[in-house]
Structures are given as structure tokens and as C-alpha cells.
Simulated scan of single mutants.
Amino acid sequence: MEATEIVSRDPEVMNGALVFAGTRVPVEVLVEYLAAGDSLDEFLEAIPTVSREQAVAYLKLTPEAVEEAAGLAGSAR
């Protein structure tokens, strides 16, 4: 799945927040659900406009983005 199929950012959609592509659902909502102890299934049931594939792909991208931002990309774990 391409990054553009997972998330998007547009200043005219949700004030430029990072959202799941094709929706108005900020990715932060998924993070908040998980941080509160809710499951991915609970999130998907509550927010049916986000596909399981999008949510899982976003969660897989997140560690890579953190490593890149911290300058750790390509380093041994």
C-alpha cells in the first residue's frame, strides 16, 4: 500500500491535520484509541471509514518515521 493510500494532509481538510486518506479522520484518533487501551477492532468498529489495511499500514509506518526523525534510520536495532 502506497503512503498516499494510507494518509494525506490538506490545509482544507481538518485544518491540515494528518488524516487517513479519503477520510476526515485524523490519525491521532487511532493513537488515542490505542493509548486508552482500546483495540484496533474497537477503533475500526467506531470509525468505519478507515480500512483495516490503512490502520495497520499506518502503524507499521510509524516506527520508521520516528527512527527517521531521530536520525536513527538504517542503524542497527
Rank of each mutant, 00 (worst) to 15 (best):
E2D: 13
E2L: 07
E2C: 01
A3N: 06
E5D: 14
E5R: 05
E5F: 02
I6E: 00
V7W: 02
S8N: 06
R9V: 08
R9M: 11
R9F: 04
P11N: 10
P11A: 09
V13K: 09
V13C: 06
V13P: 01
G16Q: 05
G16S: 05
A17P: 00
F20S: 01
A21V: 06
G22F: 04
T23S: 02
V27K: 01
V27Y: 00
E28L: 12
E28G: 10
V29S: 04
V29A: 05
L30K: 01
V31Q: 04
V31M: 07
V31T: 08
E32W: 03
E32Q: 13
Y33E: 03
A35K: 11
A35M: 10
A36V: 01
G37K: 07
D38H: 15
S39V: 08
E42V: 07
E42R: 11
F43A: 01
F43S: 01
F43V: 04
L44V: 04
L44I: 08
L44P: 01
A46F: 06
I47H: 10
P48W: 11
P48I: 09
T49V: 10
T49D: 15
V50T: 06
V50A: 03
S51N: 11
R52F: 08
E53V: 13
E53M: 06
E53N: 10
A55P: 03
V56C: 08
V56Q: 13
A57E: 11
A57H: 05
Y58D: 01
L59P: 02
K60Y: 08
L61C: 02
P63M: 11
P63L: 07
E64H: 09
V66G: 12
V66E: 13
E67Q: 12
E67T: 06
E68S: 15
E68T: 13
A69C: 14
A69E: 13
A70M: 15
A70Q: 14
A70C: 14
L72N: 11
A73Q: 13
G74Y: 10
G74E: 07
S75Q: 14
R77T: 13
